[in-house]
């Protein structure tokens, strides 16, 4: 019983309920770093960590938390976890931290974290909320990583910094620049929405 519930939460967050496709939520802070795969992976790891732990904490407090200051408390919890991510990155991955700059801090305003805390953690026990946090974080991450792989490959001819395409490959500069991300995401949403409609029929 419990296991099937966990499984259901997991599948829903990764598939049909995927926050990026279903609501186009939370792309703000991470989309900007998707032109290099390495940065994206680190950002996503930070996001999964924050979503999972803030879900856990909010859920553990849900019965004592006064309703009126709910949002404030949630923001505070999220901000604290993001600070931890920032400190850890600066101490152990200084190069990546330097490149990401302010984007780590922007995880705070990522709508997914707040959204999951409000929609799931407030009504479910801590364990399940933790799983939900990980699942929605991962669901979000794989979309962004797919975008990052394509952007880095087409834009710089590399993946994870290693040259993959032949030397004479002309880089599609537009891919590493801002418009590339918009187009890629739109195409992804198109594909996913198109295929899910066909399934329903």
């Amino acid at each position: 019983m419990a296991q099937s519930k966990v499984k259901r939460v997991f599948l829903e967050d990764l598939g049909s309920g995927n926050p990026v496709f279903a609501q186009v939520l939370g792309i703000c802070s991470t989309l900007a770093v998707t032109n290099v795969l390495k940065n994206t992976v680190v950002m996503c790891a930070g996001l999964v960590f924050t979503t999972a732990l803030s879900n856990l904490t909010v859920s553990a407090m849900r019965n004592v938390m006064p309703g009126r200051i709910r949002m404030m408390v949630e923001t505070l919890i999220i901000a604290s976890y993001v600070i931890i991510v920032d400190i850890v990155l600066r101490a152990y991955l200084p190069d990546v931290s330097r490149q990401l700059g302010p984007y780590v801090g922007l995880i705070i305003t990522n709508c997914i974290i707040m959204g999951r805390a409000e929609a799931f953690a407030l009504n479910n026990p801590p364990g399940l909320s933790f799983i939900d946090g990980i699942a929605s974080g991962l669901g979000y991450s794989y979309v962004l990583m797919a975008i990052a792989v394509l952007r880095e490959l087409l834009g710089s001819g590399t993946i994870w910094g290693y040259r993959v395409l032949w030397e004479s490959w002309t880089n599609w500069s537009i891919m590493v620049m801002a418009p590339g991300a918009f187009f890629m995401l739109a195409i992804f949403i198109w594909i996913v929405k198109g295929s899910s409609k066909r399934e329903k029929k």
């Binding site: 006064p66 404030m72 408390v73 505070l76 919890i77 604290s80 931890i84 101490a91 152990y92």
Partner: peptide, 25 residues
């Protein structure tokens, strides 16, 4: 009161982690 306690708890946690990694940084 609740807000105050939560704030204090979280600020102390982050402060401890910061102090521990300050030298490394």
């Amino acid at each position: 009161l609740f807000m105050l306690i939560v704030t204090l708890v979280f600020i102390s946690i982050t402060t401890i982690i910061y102090t521990l990694s300050k030298d490394t940084i």
